[in-house]
């Protein structure tokens, strides 16, 4: 066969294939159509972020973390019947206001893909910035931390990020929820930092003491005490969206009447267990800065604790504080 004839034949095949593809593309099970359909359903049911929700669920079906992979690359692909059934089941959960992160059982925190299971608190974007703040601060002061504790580790996002960043760092993570402890452990294993981490099911009390923790674990002091403690004022809890109020652990959110119920004990804990040059880093409510300053004004001297710096989040709200021992 001459080369020209072969090329002509190949052209024919290409044409037939593309025609077939086009014929398929008119069917209802094509990604693009399914996306549109569910966006409309979500909109009708007044589900927040209708389009983004279905895009993320679809990406999950295609085993990718990037929504553009499905909205662009796979948009003309036809879903199999199994895929459709699975997708519909997941979308039913969304109609019941389940957070997308729980539906697809994972979410991203900075570079990490972390497992998410209800009711363990889902890390927020603000907290991603806390990692930069801590690492920048420690590196600019040439301080390489070797020992840290996180109070209320949840999914483990903060501790695992820090352990990844500082390979010589060892961490203790505690959480009052057994589910959270298990999840922290699982995520640590997944990201190969389990050998740097010990997780304990324990709770901090109002006096800043950690119950159920072997005392010898606290003999050595810490370079870092980190926490994203529950800080939502109790009065705001009923105003939370159903995604949060119905599905996330209320104990990871409710910070008491002023939102400081756990923040204050963590400060007391820090004053007892921090190395002389160590720091406490906390995420707080947007209106906490003045209250913390006021409180430290009254009893900071007694605790030998001072606020050294406060940081804003990407929305320019006061979000993080750093405390150190008074020399």
């Amino acid at each position: 066969m001459s080369l020209n004839r072969m090329l002509a034949l190949k052209n024919c095949v290409v044409l037939v294939l593309s025609l077939q593809k086009r014929a398929l593309a008119t069917k209802a099970n094509v990604v693009d159509n399914v996306l549109k359909e569910w966006t409309a359903k979500f909109e009708q049911a007044k589900i927040p972020e209708p389009e983004n929700s279905i895009q993320n669920i679809m990406a999950h079906i295609f085993n990718t973390t990037k929504i553009d992979d499905v909205t662009i690359v796979e948009k003309n692909t036809e879903l199999t019947n199994d895929q459709i059934t699975h997708l519909n089941k997941l979308c039913e959960c969304r109609l019941a206001r389940m957070p997308v992160q729980y539906i697809i059982k994972e979410w991203n925190f900075r570079d990490l893909t972390l497992k998410m299971t209800p009711p363990v608190f889902i890390p927020r974007s603000e907290t991603e910035e806390l990692i930069d703040i801590i690492t920048d601060k420690l590196e600019s002061s040439n301080h390489t931390p070797t020992r840290m504790i996180e109070i209320g580790s949840g999914t483990g996002a903060i501790t695992i990020s820090l352990l990844k960043h500082f390979p010589k760092l060892k961490a203790i993570a505690i959480d009052q929820s057994k589910h959270a402890c298990d999840l922290t452990e699982q995520n640590a294993v997944m990201h190969n930092v389990a050998n740097q981490l010990q997780v304990f099911h324990a709770e901090i009390d109002s006096k800043g003491q950690v119950k159920n923790l072997q005392p010898d674990l606290l003999e050595q002091k810490f370079d870092l005490v980190v926490s994203n403690p529950p800080y939502v004022p109790s009065l705001d809890i009923p105003k939370l969206e159903p995604e949060i109020a119905l599905y996330e652990d209320i104990k990871a959110l409710d910070g008491g009447h002023d939102g400081l119920n756990i923040i204050k004990p963590i400060c007391v804990f820090g004053s007892n267990y921090l190395k002389p040059n160590g720091s406490i880093f906390l995420e707080t409510n947007h209106d906490h800065l003045d209250k913390i300053k006021e409180w430290l004004g009254i009893c900071g001297h007694h605790m030998k604790l001072k606020l050294v710096e406060n940081y804003k989040d990407f929305n320019n709200k006061d979000r993080f504080v750093e405390l150190k021992l008074v020399e």
Partner: peptide, 11 residues
């Protein structure tokens, strides 16, 4: 209020 008050997936 941001922070823990909000859980959004649109990034």
């Amino acid at each position: 209020a941001g922070g823990q008050h909000i859980n959004k997936t649109d990034s």
